[in-house]
Design a protein around this nucleic acid. Structure first.
Lengths: 160, 160
DNA sequence: TCAAAACCCATGGTATTCCATTTAAAGGAT
DNA sequence: ATCCTTTAAATGGAATACCATGGGTTTTGA
């Protein structure tokens, strides 16, 4: 499974265009390489991004709720209405929506930060601050991370 | 699988015409791109919309009830009699029915909000209020959402 | 006959596509 | 390792196509 990793800072032009790093584009699942989906990150002033396949899985999981239930209504509205699908132009660029740029405080530069199955887009200075904080948190809590091993059956169990 | 996502606010002209966002029209299943079906949202003062294929599936699911049972009677009547099918004009617009506009409190602007397999049409201010509520509910209930993984056989089982 | 709906065309703005240039990375040879 | 060549990626700007919107005209059906 290809993962989003490393970080890249690219320019945002007057139209709001940015090049998505080619490594990130290459990490998109086959059949889903035409676009990415983005939304406000829940815990930070940043843009969170993933591929459309990931969104389809989330949507499928909504079927766990009865179709006319309050929960289905609340989750589908809150999750799906906030999404934006952006297709790449011929050069691998997207146009950042105005509201998301403002939410993240992005002006002329955008930092793409890999997070594994997703990645984020930050205003560069804000990203550096947050990265610093995250590293300190990880130092404190490092013992909490446990490796999980995949068995051949595809199920998951705790490793040693 | 195409999904309705993101949100768009369009004008309603004097004739009650609105452009359905092109992204939503493009998300309609092939063979069902001439019209959409709408009805009063069950839980809110909003218009709920979907494609005709979706309605056919809902209708199929009514066969889970015995043909002359009370439930079959109640559900089929309640769900199907309130539906309105609206065809697009040459520019991708529909004419909102008067009663549904009043039910949703829509005057000059209409907000289209994607919900995955369906979407809703709201009076813009009412939508913003409801979105805020829905987001809070989701934060409280977020543990209820369980990812569901499709197996290669096409059946669905709970994942971890 | 009248109003509502369907159809048609025109416009302005926005988003998409295309091409040209610059910059950076990768590979080979000295 | 250094320099040069080659390729790919990122950037800038212009041309094009699409879409939302407004208005008008014809058709439909009550």
């Amino acid at each position: 499974m290809p993962l989003f990793m490393s970080k890249y800072t690219n320019k945002v032009d007057g139209k709001g265009r940015v090049s998505v790093p080619s490594q990130f584009r290459a990490a998109l699942p086959s059949g889903f390489q035409k676009s990415i989906v983005m939304y406000q990150a829940v815990n930070h002033g940043a843009i969170e991004c993933c591929d459309l396949l990931h969104i389809e899985k989330v949507n499928d999981s909504l079927e766990g709720f009865a179709p006319y239930s309050d929960e289905h209504d609340e989750f589908s509205l809150a999750l799906m209405s906030g999404l934006t699908e952006l297709c790449f132009d011929g050069n691998g660029r997207i146009i950042l929506p105005q509201d998301l740029m403002e939410y993240a405080g992005i002006m002329n530069l955008a930092t793409f930060a890999g997070k594994g199955k997703t990645f984020q887009i930050w205003e560069p200075a804000a990203f550096n601050r947050e990265l610093d904080i995250a590293r300190h948190k990880v130092k404190e809590k490092r013992d909490l991370l446990k490796f999980r091993l995949k068995t051949t059956e595809g199920t998951i169990k705790d490793g040693s």
